[in-house]
Design a protein around this nucleic acid. Structure first.
Length: 647
RNA sequence: GCCUUUGUAGCUCAGGGGUAGAGCACUUCCUUGGUAAGGAAGAGGUCACGGGUUCAAUUCCCGUCAAAGGCUCCA
């Protein structure tokens, strides 16, 4: 008897019964076999050394596969547990899953505690244990035996986990002297784990429930090669250097004040100028696309949010209403702009000929975020959205989506975000009852989004069940210069608000119809967007956006007048330029200008003053040679034009 | 909101129950120089805020506020 194994390239091979994935790997090449961490059998990730169940499709997983990494990290969590048990006998264990970067284990140390000073010891023990090349032995265990084992060990967390499992579906894995309740799968043996780093320690509630005991969560990461760990740590270091909170302070973009309140950013002059430039850019693009700017107040009557449904859903977790002294009328700080825009749409009768109506506003909104959630500019309590609402007919959804996609891509191009994909969030196919809006409209809108994304050639991922209750959406996921993923730019269809605000237009048939509403925000929140930009560019913003594009550096005070003149000429050519007026040596001025990230340095001495030229130096690149002020201005303006995509 | 840690000059940080420290930045003076740090002097602090212990608190204790990491949450 033999079994048929189908490999990812479509080839089919025959193997005897009892063949393992590892055997298959060996039959292909020894090199592959040495790198196999786990196997995907008929779509399920399993131990590479388990016999294949019969005819199957087989994918051998290595470090290059996300699932291979996850398997190594999961096995590493067991290894860390083994090390901790050796170093801190009596420790009880919660769960230890792999995460995006590494893994953690939640442990109960009793009266002891672990601090950063203990990390080195744990790492050393893990490496020592890993070098023993212990295999991960799987064993199916009856529930009673599993309970007996952890009762004996006194580990109430594992016992609780076993409670929730079905008899016959419980397995243990043992490596070295450590046995853990685990579904698996695991890597063949511990020697694959070559580099180990315990990253941090934090508190975490057992099962995420704040009423239950707080355990110690130990985060760590491992790699099959020391070099990869080094690279990872270097990247972490780079991320710390680019932290927008640090750079925002260094570049004088924004600040916070205890007196103003946490989560309420104060934009400094340079940061404001940058913001305004982003806003101008978006306004020009929106005008081109037929949007109309509107302006609405920062507060709205409570009834507005009762109508929209937000009061019921978020009222109790929000900033409390403010009220008038005489009448006790209640108002809410606006947490979103859409209800105001709905009222603008409803302010007069609309004909199908008027649609789409596109209302845009850089609206500042206020949301109560829990204090522990606030984080620099990425999570704040007051922020400005580049918000707009498109009121259109169902048959216009696709075209509007395509236009918005173009707008988002324009933004990405201007801001040098080149790596992105779109996530389309659709209904849960199993349960359509939790969504508002007709089945017909949903089907139409979902198809419109899918078609629009396809026609624009977007790389897309479709997620079923991720849609909001009020409509499907398309979100853009952007990878920054360090490979981190951010969600930026969102386009959402909404059937709920037109319903609740009873929005209508008169159709060609002379009957009243309900418009479809599309929310969209290419930047999302300006605050968050600027934060991402800072980290993506490390503070070296695109030329069109940067606070100051050039700084004139006179060789000595003798050329100060000429330097001011040059700066004035540049200003006349719409170039933002500063002058370093200090009586410092040129080396010092260059160094400081480089560190302050001025894109261009214009060095001006006797020769240049006589010729009417400047010696141009580009930040991070060095000397570009001598040119006239006009040539330099043209160079800058041409670059800006290119970056803005002709807008 | 909860847990842990932190809060000393504009910034980065040292210190410690008895007159508050460094480097950078800043001010003044000297220097006027050609592609990543010239020199000297000076100014700058309610040691986050409020209470307590003590002869004495920036230091020890409690509380508040803020920040960092994590948990939970996110229109």
């Amino acid at each position: 008897m033999s079994i048929q194994v189908t490999l990812p390239d479509g080839s089919v091979r025959n193997f005897p019964q009892g063949t393992t994935a590892m055997d298959v790997a060996r039959s292909i090449s020894e090199g592959l076999a040495r790198n196999v961490l786990a196997a995907k059998v008929n779509g399920e990730v399993r131990d590479a050394d388990r016999p294949l169940p019969g005819d199957c499709t087989l994918q051998l997983l290595t470090w290059n596969d996300a699932e291979g990494k996850a398997t190594l990290w999961h096995s590493s969590a067991h290894l860390m547990a083994e090390a901790i048990e050796a170093l801190y006998p009596g420790t009880k264990f919660g769960i230890g899953p792999p995460i995006e970067h590494g893994f953690y284990y939640d442990i109960d140390l009793g009266d002891r505690s672990i601090g950063e000073g203990d990390f080195a010891g744990i790492e050393a023990k893990m490496k020592e244990l890993a070098a023993r090349k212990s295999t991960y032995q799987r064993r199916e265990v009856p529930k009673a035996e599993a309970i007996a084992y952890f009762k004996e060990k006194g580990d109430e967390y594992k016992l609780e986990l076993i409670e929730g499992l079905e008899d016959g579906n419980i397995s243990f894995y043992t490596q070295g002297g450590f046995t853990d309740l685990c579904r698996g799968p695991h890597i063949p043996d511990t020697s694959f784990i070559k580099a180990v780093k315990v990253m941090s320690v934090a508190g975490a509630y057992w099962r995420g429930d704040e009423k239950r005991k707080q355990l110690t969560r130990l985060y760590a990461i491992t790699f099959p090669k020391q070099k990869e760990l080094d690279e990872y740590l270097t990247l972490q270091e780079e991320a710390r250097k680019r932290d927008h909170r640090k750079l925002g302070k260094e570049l004088d973009l924004f600040t916070f004040s205890e007196k103003v309140g946490s989560g309420l950013p104060l934009w400094l002059p340079k940061g404001t100028a940058l913001r305004e430039r982003l806003i101008d850019f978006m306004k020009r693009a929106q005008e081109r696309d037929g949007y109309q700017q509107v302006a609405t107040p920062h507060i709205g009557g409570k009834q507005l949010y009762v109508t929209s449904g937000h009061w019921e859903k978020y009222g109790k977790d929000s900033f409390r209403p403010i009220s008038t002294p005489q009448e006790g009328e209640e108002f809410l700080l606006k947490p979103m702009n859409c209800p105001h825009h709905c009222e603008i749409f409803a302010s007069r009768p609309r004909s199908y000929k008027d649609l789409p109506v596109r209302l845009a506003e850089f609206g500042t909104v206020y949301r109560y975020e829990q204090s522990g959630e606030l984080h620099g500019l990425t999570r704040v309590r007051g922020f400005t959205q580049d918000d707009a609402h498109l009121f259109c007919r169902a048959d216009q959804v696709k075209e509007e989506f395509m236009k918005v996609i173009d707008l988002v891509l324009l933004v990405f191009k201007a801001l040098e975000l080149h790596d992105y994909e779109a996530q389309i969030s659709l209904r849960d196919q199993e349960d359509r009852s939790k969504y508002i809006g007709s089945d017909e409209n949903w089907t139409k809108a979902e198809q419109a989004i899918i078609d629009a994304a396809a026609e624009k050639g977007l790389k897309t991922v479709v997620e079923h069940g991720e849609a909001a209750f009020y409509g499907p959406k398309l979100d853009f996921m952007v990878k920054d210069a360090l490979g981190r993923r951010w969600q930026l730019g969102t386009i959402q269809v909404d059937y709920n608000l037109p319903e609740r605000f009873e929005l209508e237009y008169v159709g060609a048939d002379n009957h009243r119809h309900r418009p479809v509403m599309i929310h969209r925000a290419p930047f999302g929140s300006l605050e968050r967007f600027v934060a991402v930009l800072i980290e993506h560019t490390a503070g070296r913003f695109p030329l069109w956006l940067t606070p100051e594009q050039a700084i004139v550096l006179p060789i000595s005070d003798k050329f100060l007048d000429r330097a001011q003149q040059v700066a004035g000429d540049l200003k006349d050519s719409d170039i933002r330029a500063a002058v370093d007026e200090r009586s410092e040596k040129i080396g010092r001025k260059i160094r400081d200008a480089e560190l302050a990230k001025f894109p261009f340095m214009l060095i001006l001495g006797e020769k240049e003053a006589a010729e009417g030229t400047v010696s141009v130096r580009e930040q991070g690149r060095g000397d570009l040679g001598t040119m006239s002020v006009q040539v330099f201005a043209d160079l800058v303006n041409e670059r800006v034009r290119q970056q803005l995509g002709g807008l």
